[in-house]
């Protein structure tokens, strides 16, 4: 039990970088970016191939990050310059990346057993808290800069920030690039932790990212960027805990994971809306009763 909890904590932190990437596109840019499913694998592929050919682990990891930046930039260019719908741009890039990832790896699975990875000398549980915290704080800082604020405003009110001179094509590309860079970085770290890169490792990653963002926001709140990014990180850990607990149920299979994730996201999205409408109905009922009884009291004489 303790082991699986620690395992969940560990992978929660590794996937937190991916969740932060999804947070940037989904929440800040208001852009549902499906590139994630492809760029996560790209990160793992680049890192694995470079490490097996003898490159230092940290150089390989940085190159994976750069590969993600590039993938995001391409999605951004397709969307802004090619004027293709955002959702479709992401899907196109995701499909294109499948072939590219296959080219990078040369085969569907690259093993890293016995290779020198980032985690060869230090356990992820020791290293990741510092990495995640540093990236979270850097992101917070970035979103307070003039460029970062322009990026946030692009997701909030594009027309407004354009009228103040920001090039929204550029901020969208920047956001997508940064997001997919983080996703690929997460993919590279996961590959090194699990000691293999797999062509299908990115499938459903966007939904896991969304689940982390939504769970985090629901539990920990998101009144400003600082708390929002914190919530995303914690959300990613909570998600892994939930999964670890779910997998302890005997009749659930490993492959049911994606179904569980989808259900978690649906519930997390539907619940707040339903709660709001219930609340509204209750208020409306109470008020109309009040107004009704007032009218009765104030009415003069009898009816017909």
């Amino acid at each position: 039990m303790m082991n699986s909890l620690l395992g969940a904590l560990e992978s929660g932190m590794l996937y937190a970088l991916m969740a932060l990437g999804v947070y940037i596109t989904f929440r800040i840019l208001d852009f549902p970016d499906l590139t994630v499913d492809g760029s996560f694998t790209t990160g793992g592929a680049i890192a694995a191939v470079m490490i097996t050919s003898g490159a230092p682990a940290w150089v390989s990891t940085l190159c994976a990050f750069a590969g993600g930046l590039l993938a995001g930039t391409l999605t951004g260019l397709i969307h802004t310059k090619g004027r293709i719908n955002g959702l479709l741009s992401g899907i196109l890039m995701m499909i294109a990346l499948y072939s590219i990832n296959m080219r990078i790896m040369g085969k569907p699975n690259v093993a890293l057993i016995g290779e020198k990875t980032i985690f060869s000398s230090v356990s992820p549980l020791l290293l990741m808290p510092f990495v995640v915290l540093a990236i979270k704080l850097l992101l917070d800082l970035f979103f307070r800069t003039e460029l970062g604020m322009a990026l946030r405003a692009t997701g909030d009110n594009q027309r407004m920030i354009r009228s103040f001179g920001a090039n929204t094509d550029y901020t969208i590309i920047l956001g997508l690039s940064l997001s997919n860079g983080l996703v690929a970085l997460s993919g590279a770290l996961i590959a090194q932790q699990s000691q293999f890169a797999d062509i299908s490792s990115g499938i459903g990653m966007i939904v896991i990212g969304l689940a982390s963002v939504i769970i985090g926001e629901a539990i920990f709140g998101a009144r400003n960027v600082f708390f929002a990014t914190l919530a995303v990180v914690l959300g990613s850990i909570v998600y892994r805990l939930v999964v670890a607990l779910a997998l302890r149920i005997e009749w659930l299979e490993q492959t049911d994971l994606k179904l569980i994730t989808a259900v978690i996201v649906i519930v997390a999205l539907v619940l707040p809306t339903m709660r709001r409408s219930w609340k509204q109905k209750a208020v409306a009922r109470r008020r109309s009763l009040e107004i009704g009884s007032e009218a009765e009291r104030n009415s003069v004489g009898g009816g017909l």
Binding site: F142, R144, T145, G148, A153, F164, A166
Partner: peptide, 16 residues
């Protein structure tokens, strides 16, 4: 702060 940056290039200096 965003209105204040009108016409300037937006860099990595803190907005506020």
């Amino acid at each position: 702060a965003m209105a204040y940056s009108r016409g300037k290039s937006r860099g990595l200096s803190i907005g506020i």
